[in-house]
Simulated scan of single mutants.
Amino acid sequence: LLRGVQRLNDEDCLFLSGCLKNKPVTGEQFTIRTHIGTFTSLHFECNRIRQPVEVWKRFCFSLQGNSSLLSLRLSGNKIGNRGTMYLAHMLQVNTGLQELELADSDLATQSVIALTIVLKSNRSLRSVDISRPLLFSHQEEWAVHCSEMLAMNSSLVELHLGKMGLTDAGMERLTAGLRFNHSLRYLDLRCNRVTRDGTQHLAGLLKENPSLQIIDLSSNRLEDEGAVYLSEAISWPGCGLKECSVNSNNIRTKGLLALTEAMKANTTLTHVYIWGNYLEEPAFRELMSGGRLLPERTDVSAYEVDGRVFLAEVFTKLRRRYYSYPAAGETTDSPVCTLQLHRT
């Protein structure tokens, strides 16, 4: 694990591309290869690429035949539309990559759609993050293609769609595809524009499909009505939800009490994060005092001053990742080695 290195430039990235090919290399490249070994994880976030088209073309070409790399994190690089197209083409050939992070990488509508199309047939990826793309269309075409992908894909277990501008209409499209999906466990929808209507579509999905275990709805617009819809789904027999975040959703006492009652009815849900709403102490007093909600599984703590009980934020958050490689029960022939190349 290499730490403390400065951001890489174009020449560094092109040189690294040669090391990613699963074939013997000579000269200086061979010396570096023998020192780092065959690595299974490449953390390449936030680097300084000035000519992205040629660099990402070479980089993706080198990954086509790579069978050892399992995790690739490229978030914070200005990959852009054309660079992502090369990535999509690489994913049509590469059958080893299991985790791909492309958050804040200047993805446009065309490249997001291209990735979802590839994921219809890709059977190796388990976790994908395409949060915060540059989407200027209000038609949410990407949601239509993502819905079709989710209906066909049977390998993804984790999908991050934060800061996508997702609306209630987009949520309706996504849930339509998720009704046919039984592999996804973690759905990240934070920082979107989902209101009570979109939450109603999600609640209907949770009643029908018990596969989803973790949902991040923080920083949306659920309000009390959305929280009530979500609570009804949580109370539904067979709901598989285990962890949920509804931080900063303008939820008041009515919605929080509904969540409280839902947790009484459903013992599967063990982690709830609610800070950033209009909190009043009675909403969670009974759950906390009765041991139903453990202190380390929420972001709210109660304290007493002069006989009055107040609530304070605890800095425990919904986990950011669900999938880890190799997955439980899986093994890899190569020693697990992470190459981290970004500014820390």
Rank of each mutant, 00 (worst) to 15 (best):
152 M>E: 12
119 L>M: 12
127 S>F: 02
117 I>W: 02
122 N>V: 03
189 L>H: 13
105 S>Y: 03
182 H>D: 00
196 R>H: 14
198 G>E: 13
179 R>N: 08
107 L>S: 04
128 V>L: 15
118 V>E: 02
150 L>H: 10
174 L>T: 06
124 S>G: 08
100 L>G: 03
184 L>T: 11
202 L>D: 04
151 A>D: 06
131 S>H: 08
105 S>F: 05
171 M>G: 00
201 H>Y: 15
193 R>N: 14
165 G>T: 08
187 L>H: 08
154 S>R: 11
149 M>I: 07
148 E>Y: 02
190 R>T: 06
120 K>H: 08
179 R>L: 11
108 A>Q: 07
147 S>D: 15
145 H>N: 10
175 T>N: 08
188 D>R: 09
159 L>G: 01
181 N>F: 11
106 D>I: 01
149 M>R: 10
164 M>I: 05
147 S>L: 14
160 H>P: 03
192 N>V: 07
124 S>A: 15
154 S>A: 08
120 K>N: 11
201 H>E: 15
196 R>M: 10
177 G>N: 06
138 H>Y: 00
169 A>H: 15
203 A>H: 06
158 E>S: 01
139 Q>Y: 13
145 H>G: 04
109 T>C: 00
134 L>P: 03
187 L>T: 07
121 S>K: 02
108 A>N: 03
104 D>T: 14
172 E>I: 05
135 L>E: 05
149 M>W: 05
174 L>S: 09
198 G>W: 14
108 A>T: 05
196 R>S: 13
149 M>F: 05
178 L>Y: 12
167 T>Y: 05
119 L>I: 03
174 L>F: 10
155 S>V: 15
195 T>I: 12
144 V>E: 12
169 A>T: 14
171 M>A: 02
120 K>A: 02
208 E>F: 01
116 T>E: 01
101 E>A: 10
124 S>Y: 07
195 T>Q: 09
130 I>N: 00
161 L>K: 13
199 T>Y: 00
167 T>M: 01
146 C>N: 12
157 V>E: 09
183 S>L: 10
154 S>T: 05
158 E>Q: 04
173 R>A: 14
202 L>M: 12
164 M>V: 05
171 M>S: 00
192 N>H: 00
176 A>H: 12
138 H>A: 08
195 T>K: 11
123 R>M: 00
155 S>G: 11
134 L>T: 05
159 L>V: 07
143 A>I: 08
99 E>M: 15
128 V>M: 07
190 R>H: 08
116 T>M: 08
162 G>H: 04
208 E>V: 09
175 T>I: 13
146 C>F: 13
142 W>N: 09
189 L>R: 15
130 I>Q: 03
195 T>P: 04
121 S>M: 02
196 R>Y: 13
127 S>V: 00
189 L>P: 14
168 D>G: 13
157 V>D: 03
